[in-house]
C-alpha cells in the first residue's frame, strides 16, 4: 500500500511497552518534583533508543496505540460523563463540589 504503517505483528509486540514509556499516562510528570521522584516520560526518540527501534516505528506504534487503548464504548461513556457533570454544575454551581471552601476564602 502507498503509505507507511507498521505491520500488526510489530505493533502487537511493542504497543504496551511503548505506551507505558510514553506520555500517554503521566505519573509524577510535573517539573517541581525532585529529580529522584519525577517521571517525565520518554519522547519517541528516547523510546526508540531504549528499544533499539527506528524512530518512525515507535512514533507509528504510539500513535496507533493511543487510539487503540480505549474502545468505542469509552467515547459513548464520555458523552454520559459530560452531560451529567455539566448539568450538575448548571443546577448546583460550585456547591456541586466545593462552594463552602470558596466561601471560606472570601471571609
Amino acid at each position: 500500500m502507498g503509505f507507511y504503517f507498521v505491520d500488526p505483528e510489530t505493533y502487537n509486540k511493542y504497543k504496551d511497552e511503548i505506551l507505558e514509556m510514553s506520555h500517554a499516562v503521566q505519573v509524577n510528570f510535573q517539573e517541581h518534583l525532585p529529580a529522584d521522584k519525577r517521571q517525565p516520560g520518554y519522547s519517541d526518540k528516547q523510546i526508540a533508543e531504549k528499544l533499539g527501534l527506528e524512530l518512525k516505528v515507535v512514533r507509528e506504534i504510539r500513535c496507533v496505540a493511543e487510539r487503540d487503548k480505549y474502545p468505542l464504548d469509552e467515547f459513548e461513556e464520555a458523552i454520559r460523563f459530560k452531560e451529567k457533570a455539566c448539568l450538575d454544575y448548571s443546577v448546583k454551581g460550585m456547591s456541586a463540589v466545593m462552594e463552602k471552601y470558596v466561601k471560606e476564602s472570601k471571609k
Binding site: L19, H23, A24, V25, Q26, V27, N28, F29, Q30, L33, K37, E66, K69, Y70
Partner: peptide, 8 residues
C-alpha cells in the same frame, strides 16, 4: 504530587 493523568 503523585499526579496521574491518563492522556488517552
Amino acid at each position: 504530587t503523585e499526579r496521574q493523568y491518563d492522556a488517552t
